[in-house]
């Protein structure tokens, strides 16, 4: 276990603005390190508080997520083992995991994120991609909407968006009925 990554710390971001800052996230063990960030599909686990929870660990078929016997530990991502399959996404009760792929296309990156609002977007729709603060960064094209019953109403949405916003984009703006 990497002790420096497992140190106890508190995210100021979630306690003040509601969301962890990027700086805080890069210090957590669930965030892919620089080496794997732009190297292909990889999971981003934005879990910054020690709450007793571990479904993501067992959801990963490749053992890329480790929490251990003490289930309040933060999930540690072994980005080298992660293929970006996305099986961990619907397992997270906190909807705190998404998969991004910088190598998706020449100019566009892709993201798969959990989404629990209706109406759902449809394949081909152009939507607004947002950052952690809910600010729109760019447009996104919906590539896939997975509503598999095994995910119990947590839909998985795949979208392509401008690569320049690779780090910022985490989700899409809720659609209005």
């Amino acid at each position: 276990m990497n002790d420096t990554k497992k140190k106890a710390w508190q995210s100021e971001g979630v306690k003040t603005s509601g969301t962890p800052t990027l700086e805080e996230l890069t210090q957590t063990p669930g965030f892919p390190s620089e080496e794997f960030l732009y190297a292909g599909p990889v999971a981003f686990i934005e879990c910054v508080e020690k709450i007793p929870c571990n479904p993501c660990e067992t959801a990963c078929p490749r053992g890329a997520i480790t929490i251990g016997d003490n289930i309040t530990e933060l999930p540690m991502l072994d980005a080298g083992k992660c293929t970006g399959c996305g099986l961990c996404l619907p397992s997270c009760p906190g909807l705190a995991i998404y998969v991004k792929d910088y190598t998706f296309e020449q100019d566009r990156a892709s993201i798969i994120f959990p989404f629990e609002y209706l109406p759902l977007p449809k394949k081909g729709d152009i939507v607004e991609m947002v950052d952690r603060f809910g600010e729109t960064l760019c447009e996104g094209e919906i590539l896939m909407v997975n509503t598999s019953s095994r995910n119990d109403q947590t839909s998985l949405i795949k979208a392509a968006f401008d690569k320049r916003h690779f780090i910022g984009v985490v989700s899409m703006k809720r659609l209005v009925t």
Partner: peptide, 27 residues
Amino acid sequence: VVEAAPRLGGYGVHTAKLRRAGVPFFT
């Protein structure tokens, strides 16, 4: 979401879901 204390109380994963949906917090 209005909070009398200077810091938010709930789990960060919950506050983060609201924040990325554009909900402002007032501590």
